[in-house]
Design a protein around this nucleic acid. Structure first.
Lengths: 213, 213
DNA sequence: GTCTATATCACGATAGAC
DNA sequence: GTCTATCGTGATATAGAC
């Protein structure tokens, strides 16, 4: 494979029909999540995924037509979960509370689903060959909508002046850092669990940054 | 290759003797930087690196004994450059200015050397198989020292109370995000250059967060 | 020092029996 | 649906001529 983006027929697997199919597809996706998140798309092998899923390699390829198909379905399934917290932001709520709650949810995701976070990080790092259209589409739409809300809050003096899009970038960066760079965080932290202090730290940070004058 | 960490003799290349050797080694490292940063360690091939360096593949392997040796030397060479801004922090300076200057330098690195940032991100994401010792050693030492200074600043009321280590994490996360997740940033940003606004945004953020009461 | 040619092997994917 | 066996490709690394 020279370029993942320049390929002929990106055909997904057919939808599951029986319960066994459903179960095995789930087993495969769970195994793929584990393996892809550790070594990235290129580093992962079908052998590893098959072993992790408790299936033989050909059997795995009976359920999904190719390695790329597994990866694609995994990413798209994850995208929703990943964007949910932003969708849950209540545009009619109390501004600072809404944002702090969003930060809290994102940090929880980083703590509870680090593998998901790392798969995304890997995908973006390589230039998002699979989900770039989703980033330019759904994600951009969602961010633009949220940015409008934040701008309204600022204009109504309910939030300190801030660039709304870069505020969202900041929330992503600060929370996902604890999942994606966990090894570094723990190395510097002496191996201790960083999340309790991180939660406190981020709440302080955003409070000071965003409390209206 | 199943595990990069479980290998027998990690022997580096011999030091360069002639000017030609020096020049070719530099060519190779520059090419490796380009290729590794795009597709990660596993995704990169010696063919690509050789082509990028303008050398034949066997010739490339005359200068470095293996793909891993190239990667290792590249990472270690980068580590210094990457930590310099933190070392440059003046413990006797004006606290807020010093930190803002550090943020500015890190953001400049993200803008001017995104390939270096992405190679690090890739390495950490995969569990830092090559540079974990450096993280637990030099990096931790440097962070601990800086944290002490920040704590002194806080105790002298020259800086708002803050968890010093998580402050450093925050600076890393917020600046490197613009290099490592550039594709996502640009997708959401409509393709525009995010750096001018980012610089303004981060200065505001850290000013509000850290200005003493 | 640099090249052509090639050994060797791992990986993705397929064939075909059951 | 699941397995064993295997094909074809592409990648790292080496041999050996020049």
């Amino acid at each position: 494979m020279t370029k993942r983006s320049a390929q002929a027929p990106p055909r997904d697997a057919t939808p599951p029909r029986t319960r066994i199919q459903k179960r095995n597809r789930e087993l495969i996706l769970e195994a793929a999540l584990e393996v892809f998140s550790q070594t990235g798309y290129r580093g992962a092998t079908l052998d590893q995924i098959a072993a992790e899923a408790g299936l033989s390699k050909p059997n795995l390829l009976y359920y999904y037509p190719s390695k790329e198909a597994i990866h694609r379905e995994l990413l798209h399934g994850l995208l929703d979960t990943w964007l949910d917290p932003l969708k849950a932001l209540d545009h009619g709520g109390e501004p600072l509370d809404e944002i702090l709650e969003y930060v809290r949810r994102k940090l929880q995701l980083a703590r509870d689903f680090p593998r998901e976070s790392r798969i995304f990080a890997n995908e973006i790092l390589q230039g998002a060959p699979t989900i770039l259209p989703d980033l330019e589409g759904d994600l951009k739409t969602l961010v633009d909508r949220t940015a409008q809300t934040i701008n309204h809050w600022v204009k109504a003096d309910r939030l300190a002046p801030v660039d709304p899009v870069h505020l969202i970038f900041s929330i992503w960066a600060l929370t996902q850092h604890y999942a994606d760079f966990e090894v570094q965080v723990r190395a510097v932290n002496g191996g201790a669990d960083p999340f309790p202090a991180a939660e406190q730290h981020l709440e302080t940070l955003f409070r000071r940054m965003l409390s209206p004058a």
